[in-house]
Amino acid sequence: MTPHTDAKPTATPPLPGRPCSIAAALHVLGEKWALLAVRELFYGNHRFDRIARNTGAPRDRLTARLRALEEAGVVERRAYSERPPRYEYHLTEA
C-alpha cells in the first residue's frame, strides 16, 4: 500500500492494519484526559483552567493532550489575551 501524496502529515505514524476511521478516532481520543478535555469543550468550557479543574487532569498532561488534539485538527487555539498571552480551545468541525 502506498501513502497518499495529498495526505496531511501527522506527528504520529500511521496505524497498522486496515484503514479505519474508528481506529483513527481512538488513536486521537482514546486516552482518558483527551476524551475528558473534549467533553469540557463540548460543554462550553474553553479556557485551560476550567478544563483542568473540571477534568482533574494534571496540568502537564492536559497541556500535552490539548497540543495533540490541536495537531490532529480536533481543536484549535484562539488568543483571548495578549498580555499575558492566553488562549481558549475550541472544537473544530472535525
Rank of each mutant, 00 (worst) to 15 (best):
P58T: 12
T92R: 12
L66C: 02
Y43N: 09
N54Q: 13
A24V: 03
P19K: 04
V75Q: 04
R39V: 03
P85E: 10
D60K: 15
Y80V: 11
R61F: 06
P13Y: 01
N45H: 15
W33M: 08
G73H: 09
F48Q: 03
P16F: 05
G17Y: 07
T63E: 13
T5A: 07
Y80Q: 00
L15R: 13
P84L: 01
D60N: 14
A37N: 02
P19C: 04
T12V: 14
A57H: 10
P13G: 02
R50W: 03
Y43D: 11
G44L: 02
A72I: 12
P3G: 05
I51A: 01
E93L: 12
A25M: 14
L91Q: 04
A68F: 01
K8W: 03
N45K: 12
A79L: 14
T2L: 13
D60C: 08
V28R: 10
T55L: 12
A25I: 04
P16Q: 05
T92D: 11
A57C: 15
A25R: 14
R47K: 11
M1K: 12
I51H: 03
V74R: 10
E31I: 09
R47G: 00
A25F: 01
P58M: 09
H4R: 15
A34Q: 04
A52L: 05
E70D: 13
T55S: 06
